[in-house]
């Protein structure tokens, strides 16, 4: 067993999750997952549909509770936390990027980035506007920051989502098929942006993807099959930006 360590962003011990507990249709989708993510890692979580990737991601993101096992976020145990404490921990330590519907259409790009800070502090202020504007600048959307999110392209929306995921300066960003909805070119640029944020901020990323091409660009590839981690290895030949013509099947 690993000791608690600041350098550990995430530690999972024997996570089990079943649906329909107590009914004849009870199915266990995670069969005891152990996983450690160190600070600054950029890991891909791959696997076929139904292998439990999303369930695992929801549990790590504190959106769902495991039936068994322990989960530590930056060394902090989570099993005894109440809903409000989970919300706070999630707000401060975890950023989310989803495949669809990442943004609230009633708000502008800039406001969407501000929202997590706004929810935490209660009132808007100049500081959060400044932080959000800086992030919008970093993701290259300053000219679009006052646009409503529905007026942005899919790639732009995902960039805003990345900015929003980072606005609380979290330890971990969870991305669920962040480029699944984009054409290759946009997917590449969104992916590159995440990579860049990982490098410059030292934020840990865990990216669920179906796209082996993108997985090959991550430092570590964790593969799930049928609710177990089938393989977990360092990716020694990380493909560089621009190696678009490489295909791995």
């Amino acid at each position: 067993m690993a000791e608690y360590n600041d350098a550990l962003t995430l530690r999972l011990e024997g996570i089990r999750k079943a649906y329909g507990v107590g009914t004849p249709a009870e199915t266990e989708v995670l069969h005891g997952i152990d996983l450690i993510l160190k600070r600054g890692e950029f890991a891909a979580l791959i696997g076929p549909s139904g292998s439990g990737k999303s369930t695992l991601l929801n549990i790590i993101g504190l959106l769902d509770q495991p039936n068994q096992g322990k989960l530590f976020i930056t060394g902090q145990p989570t099993e005894l936390l109440k809903d409000i404490e989970l919300t706070r921990l999630r707000a401060s330590e975890i950023g989310f990027i989803f495949q669809f519907h990442n943004l609230l259409p009633a708000f502008t790009a800039l406001e969407n980035v501000m929202l997590p800070r706004l929810a935490e502090l209660g009132h808007p202020d100049d500081e959060m506007r400044l932080i959000a504007a800086e992030l919008i600048e970093k993701v290259g959307l300053t000219p679009w920051k006052e646009h409503k999110s529905n007026d942005l392209s899919g790639g732009q929306q995902q960039r805003v989502a990345i900015a929003r995921a980072l606005v609380m300066n979290p330890a971990l960003v969870l991305a669920d098929e962040p480029t699944g909805n984009l054409d290759t070119k946009s997917a590449d640029s969104v992916f590159d942006l995440m990579r860049e944020m990982n490098k410059t901020n030292g934020t840990t990323f865990l990216i669920v993807t179906h796209d082996p091409r993108l997985a090959q660009r991550c430092d570590r590839i964790i593969e799930m099959v049928d609710g177990n981690i089938a393989s977990d290895k360092e990716n020694l030949n990380v493909l560089k930006i621009g190696d678009n013509n490489t295909h791995i099947s």
């Binding site: 959106l63 409000i84 519907h101 943004l103 609230l104 929202l115 935490e120 609380m168």
Partner: peptide
């Protein structure tokens, strides 16, 4: 519901 889920995921509490 998706937007509410999103708000919840990004730090909005049940009470909010």
């Amino acid at each position: 519901s998706k937007e509410i889920g999103l708000l919840r995921a990004t730090g909005t509490s049940r009470q909010q």
